[in-house]
Amino acid sequence: MSNIAGKAYAMNVVTPLKPGQRWLARLIHWLAGTRLLRSKLLGLRTLSLIHYAGWAILPRRRWPRLDSAQPSENLHYDYYLFFSNFNGSWEQYVDSFSSAIPAGLDLMWWRNVGYPGSVPRNPFHAYIEHNQFWTHHYYSAYPLATSNDVKAACRLRPALCELASRADRLSAQEFGQRYRTLLTEQQEHLGLVAESPVVSLAHQAVVERRRVEQTEPAVPPAQESGS
């Protein structure tokens, strides 16, 4: 079990919506994608701790049912499924939300049963912790990179391609000028990454798990199927 893949942390939060609020929640989700609410989400973007995150709504009568033999669900509430891939520690993430963008957060969650509001911090911490589900298998394509690293790298590459495509055809002086222009214009995107520093004591568990995996290779799934 691991919520951590290098610099990314996987969060799952499943919470009940107050009765009759589903359509309003849907409207907010729709508006979030439009200009009307985008400014509310400026904070989320500026935090720049998140690779990808999302909210899904599961109406109480529409949980997937694939077989007539499968028991049907009998729920009082519609449910909210939240997921996030963020950089840093759980505390940093939850604290950042609570102190920097409480209004945006409340907009997304205030129709949830038992939601205490994002400020004060401790009840909000407790709420997220109470409703969080641990990930069993987590994969990131770039455990070495944060969302900031990906964005910076993708901004830098076209400039490098451009200079590389003509570097050998320029005079030395001209090249030098263009090279320095590139460095000046791209300076905020330059930087080095390395393995994630230790951000929580859970790191020790991850290291230990790697060690166990390396000494006892996992059984191929096909041989292990139980049915």
Partner: peptide, 24 residues
């Protein structure tokens, strides 16, 4: 200590992502 001293030590002194500086 955790939210203040340790955070500054960990995230701001020994790491750079909050400043968009990779692992600097």
């Amino acid at each position: 200590i955790k939210r203040q001293f340790e955070f500054v030590q960990q995230k701001w002194i020994n790491y750079g992502n909050d400043f968009r500086l990779g692992n600097e």
